[in-house]
Design a protein around this nucleic acid. Sequence first.
DNA 1: ATGGGTGCAAAATCTTTGCACTCAG
DNA 2: CTGAGTGCAAAGATTTTGCACCCAT
Lengths: 148, 148
Amino acid sequence: MSKLIQEIDTTIIRAFRGKGYKATPQRIAISRFVLCNHNHPTVHKVYCEVRKAYPTVSLATVYKTIQILKEIGLVHELNLPRDQTRLDSNLNLHLNLVCLRCGSIKDHEDPMIEAIISRVSAAEQFAPREQRFDVYGICANCRGDVIL
Amino acid sequence: MSKLIQEIDTTIIRAFRGKGYKATPQRIAISRFVLCNHNHPTVHKVYCEVRKAYPTVSLATVYKTIQILKEIGLVHELNLPRDQTRLDSNLNLHLNLVCLRCGSIKDHEDPMIEAIISRVSAAEQFAPREQRFDVYGICANCRGDVIL
DNA sequence: ATGGGTGCAAAATCTTTGCACTCAG
DNA sequence: CTGAGTGCAAAGATTTTGCACCCAT
């Protein structure tokens, strides 16, 4: 096991225990996959991948673990239309460029996002806590491809 | 029936027929409610309200009609976490301030949104088509209320 | 050793679909 | 008239839950 994975595992174990949750091997395997994978996987994708290394995990455990990861703030959830929920382990303020053709999601950080949220919140007396900024369209790769 | 509703009905009928869909009384009733209601109702809310005026409409018809409204671009869909899909009939570029306490959603238009999307799209060679910008937090009203 | 966690299966939601009947154009 | 639309119920899809057994602490 690489040095990097060891570090991530340590982080995960600390995060769980710190909130009073047990650091079981299932939870570690699930969390490791979610936090290391920056392709915004679906819950089902996580389940399938984790099962390769850990054939007995159940979908219920995956859902429960992801619930905890959201609660302790290690992942966010993207609710896309015409698609399933996808997980986002980039905790920085960013927007998601969602390709309508290939389904890829690319993060893009931009200081203006912060600015806009501050401004609108001040204007509306709104106390912001989280945000989701998704732009749907066609990615550079798919634009290169052919027709339509 | 008021003058205003007549106008909206005319718009709806034209929109449906223009795309080759029949303008049935059910579709008109559903569309009228969705387009006139700016509280971002859930599908179920639409169903309940339309049923008051039209007791025989089925949930399936409501879903199918909303599907068409999305297709012809008269409504957008907000996919919120920990909540059901909600409908948005404000077609202008705006962000949604979603209150985590009372569930209200307030629109806010801001020219910076356009700017940021243009900039990021240019940088990433991305062709944007739609976007969703939701900020979760506590609204002015709920902040005024009591504790926590 | 013990209370929380796991895995399974069943339930709960939300949304879509198949089909016979109906009605808008 | 006639094909598209409706309403119902059944099927799908995703997520949650109840419960007996297990294991991390």
